[in-house]
Amino acid sequence: MNNQPTYPARHYAQKIGWMRATVLGANDGIVSIASLLIGVAAASVGRGEVLIAGVAGLVAGAMSMAAGEYVSVSSQADTERADLERERCEHETHADEEHEELAGIYRQRGLDAGLAKQVAEQLMARDPVGAHARDELGLTEVHRARPIQAALASAAAFAVGAALPLGVTWFAPEKYLVPGVAAGSLAALALLGAVAAYTGGAGLLKGAGRVALWGALAMAATALVGRAFGAFV
């Protein structure tokens, strides 16, 4: 059996940008809307009111996730651009110092002084800012901030995740609405956690368990709140 990787090889880190936004969005969609539905249903209201609350929560949550991701990742992108502009200015005004700085980085990584100097010269001759961005700042295309991509992925994933407990609410018999939403949502959360763990190269059971645990705690908390407030309203 050939276990040699194909080239160009793809690594788990190459998936981290879209995976983070997608998993976070779907997880929030399931947990938030399932908890909302269970909390409202526990207050002893009808299916119609529960569905209205759930749809409103889906729209509000998706927009909130998109806005939050966009603002957060945009701030990261602004910082990256500022760092790159600073490196560009430093190269224009202190090229020799920048060359020595890059060579020093390579010496710290194990190259001898002559080879480190040669590597720094060749890389800076081709793309001085890119060389410093990669080896001094740790900025690469794999980890580059993409605000629009993150916002759209997060909002879409939230909506998809939220659709599952809403679907259960629509089809489940009203007297089984709460346990149905809880069971379906926990199963989906466990599956999502396992898929995310597999995609990221981690253990499946650990990934599934930690997501399902926090989802169960959130649903239990909102059920208690809904029951308590329902008794007074």
Rank of each mutant, 00 (worst) to 15 (best):
E174C: 01
A196G: 13
D127L: 08
P173L: 02
V178C: 02
E141I: 05
A196P: 06
L177M: 13
G161R: 02
A155F: 12
L166G: 04
L186C: 15
R146E: 14
L152Y: 07
G130F: 10
A162R: 09
A162W: 12
V168R: 00
A188V: 04
V195Q: 10
A155K: 03
L192F: 01
Y176S: 03
G193D: 11
F158T: 10
A187Y: 04
A131H: 14
K175F: 08
T169K: 01
G138R: 05
E136C: 10
Y176T: 05
A125Y: 12
L137K: 05
A182V: 08
A157W: 14
D135Q: 09
Y176E: 05
A153Y: 13
A150Q: 11
R146K: 05
S154L: 12
V181R: 00
V168H: 00
M124F: 02
R146S: 05
L137E: 12
A194G: 03
Q149A: 06
K175I: 06
M124T: 08
P128E: 10
L166P: 13
V178F: 00
V129T: 11
G184L: 03
T169L: 09
M124R: 11
G180T: 02
D135L: 09
L177S: 03
G130I: 01
E136D: 10
A162C: 03
A145C: 07
A194Q: 07
L177W: 00
A172I: 02
V181W: 02
E174M: 03
A133P: 15
G184V: 08
G180F: 00
P179W: 08
A145T: 02
A150N: 08
G184P: 09
K175W: 11
R134Y: 07
L186V: 13
L189Q: 07
L123A: 01
R126I: 14
E174L: 01
P165L: 10
A133F: 08
I148K: 05
L166C: 06
P165V: 14
F158K: 14
G130C: 03
A197I: 05
P147C: 10
H143T: 13
E141Q: 09
